[in-house]
Design a protein around this nucleic acid. Structure first.
Length: 477
RNA sequence: CGGGGUGUAGCGCAGUCGGCUAGCGCGCUGCGUUUGGGACGCAGAGGUCGGCGGUUCAAGUCCGCCCACCCCGACCA
């Protein structure tokens, strides 16, 4: 195998595949389109879970688990839902050696089964709101797959809530979108733009879909988390009703929202460089790797003593001491860079003498990112360094994104932008057929409507009509 | 599902006109020397050549069928 990765410039897609495989985040499974998430990748997911879960709990949500198998008929109860999902369902027709009376689908998402249960559990306005989340795997039979970004099976969380009023449900939808955006920025250093999806891009069965959109290193967009206002569509289809204060029978208002292992793909493609991964410090499985440097046995014992002292000080961080004897320090440097560890700490005889350690930050390669920290208060200085890395990664990704978004004045400039410059934003008269035509002609899709404060009025870049709406368009994953 | 590509050791590949014991690099195991940016030497282990069938004295190599995976398109978190 080649020592070097393909560069992002020459082949971004191949760079991505190689990084995922070589950094041991995931591997191809024996079944087409399925992946094995390896321990290093799964630890990132666990850290994502932890960060999101505490945010969900802090906003009143609780976790539960609903079954993997859903009666096929459930999928048909909501007209749009079945239309959207039926092409990608995996269906179980046999069980225990016998053909089933009714086939079961492997959940592609859980609105239908959770709706069925909510109908059973909700009687009164006193039962509301119901705020349940589940961490689960789902299956969608996709044509074309790519590790983390689109696999037949993936892992996610799906929140499902039921409310007494429309307003409350809309607020919930927006609250969770906000949590995703905050999480993306503050934990993953991934700057995202939250906004509303167009009619043709929304979730099958939703009234409105919102998403957080992130720009990848090749300027393509990635929908990185979604939040749906479902109105009363599922309440009506599944008979989720309650008696209000006036003894009137009413349908609930429901929402659902999800973020998946796809987000790991967002982290990879937002931050990575030609050396490999660059992991955001707050989600990295290993925040600091310590590489001891020595020649003789005497040096080794001195160095290892200092390594232990440093490790004790850094107990509150996730650290790894690379004690491998069979590879050289130089090899280790490259290895941990590929794996994206935010801080590398070298401790050698010179450092022991000076009572300090040498640190290199992954976000700034080479000499520029190297410095020496005294042993005293090492925990504090490393903490500050990790924060500085996070801030730099976020700033850099934001700067990259903002310098690749351009105003589309007319269709010619639009085509130019989405072909090779990045995202286009512009006045948009919101015509479904025009949107389809643009997708056909340029491969760019309407990502979200712009969510700007004072929008005013302008001329649609495509139709020339006057409009109050603005929208982002981009090629996407 | 359409187009393209690839299946030979764990990984990446070579294998000429069908011919003798199927090779190379990386990785792996053991020993020794090394170690502050991808170390080196010596000795080893490791193969139903994707599968099935056919042609032939002889098939990794030729023919047919099948399977799998990857890449590019139509669908999608």
């Amino acid at each position: 195998m080649d020592k070097k990765l393909p560069t992002r410039q020459e082949n971004f897609s191949e760079w991505y595949n190689q990084v995922v495989l070589r950094a041991e985040l995931a591997d191809y499974a024996p079944v087409r389109g399925c992946m094995v998430v390896r321990p290093y990748g799964w630890t990132i997911w666990e850290n994502i879970q932890k960060a999101l879960d505490e945010r969900f709990k802090a906003t009143g949500h609780v976790n539960a688990a609903f079954p993997l198998l859903i009666p096929q008929s459930f999928m048909y109860k909501e007209a749009e839902h079945v239309q959207g999902f039926s092409p990608e369902l995996a269906v179980v027709t046999h069980g225990g050696g016998q053909e089933l009376e009714e086939p079961l689908v492997v959940r592609p998402t859980s609105e239908t089964i959770i709706g069925t249960m909510y109908a059973k559990w909700i009687q009164s306005y006193r039962d509301l709101p119901v705020l349940i989340n589940q961490w689960a795997n789902v299956v969608r039979w996709e044509m074309r797959t790519k590790l983390f970004l689109r696999t037949l099976e993936f892992y996610w969380q799906e929140g499902h809530t039921a409310h007494a009023t429309e307003q409350e449900a809309i607020e919930e939808t927006e609250r969770m979108l906000g949590i995703y955006a905050e999480f993306a920025r503050n934990m993953a250093a991934v700057p995202v733009i939250p906004g509303q999806k167009s009619e043709s891009e929304k979730f099958a069965g939703a009234v409105n879909t919102y998403s957080i959109e992130a720009m990848m290193g090749d300027t393509k967009a990635l929908q990185s988390g979604t939040s749906h206002f479902l109105g009363q569509n599922f309440a009506k289809a599944f008979d989720i009703k309650f008696l209000d204060e006036n003894n009137q029978l009413q349908y609930c208002w429901t929402t659902s929202w999800g973020l998946s292992t796809r987000f790991i793909g967002a982290i990879i493609m937002t931050h990575g460089d030609d050396q490999g991964l660059i992991l955001p410090p707050r989600l990295a499985p290993i925040q600091v790797v310590i590489v001891p440097i020595y020649r003789s046995d005497e040096e080794k014992s001195q160095v290892m003593e200092a390594v232990q002292k440093a490790a004790e000080q850094l107990a509150k961080f996730s650290i790894k001491i690379d004690t491998r004897e069979e590879v050289t320090p130089g090899f280790k440097f490259n290895d941990w860079e590929l794996k994206g560890v935010p801080v590398r700490m070298e401790i050698g005889p010179k450092d022991v003498q000076k009572n300090s350690v040498a640190v290199s930050r992954r976000d700034i390669p080479g000499k520029a990112g190297k410095s020496f920290l005294p042993m005293e208060n090492l925990d504090q200085s490393v903490g500050e360094l990790l924060d500085a890395i996070h801030n730099n990664m976020l700033a850099r990704a934001t700067q990259f994104r903002d310098s690749h978004i351009f105003e589309a004045k007319d269709y010619d400039s639009f085509k130019q932008i989405v072909a090779d410059q990045g995202w286009a934003v512009g006045w948009w008269s919101d015509d479904r057929e025009n949107e389809a035509r643009i997708k056909e002609e340029t491969k760019a899709t309407l990502r979200i409507y712009a969510n700007e404060p004072d929008i005013g009025e302008g001329v649609c870049f495509y139709s020339g009509k006057r409009t109050r709406k603005r929208a982002y368009f981009a090629r996407s994953y």
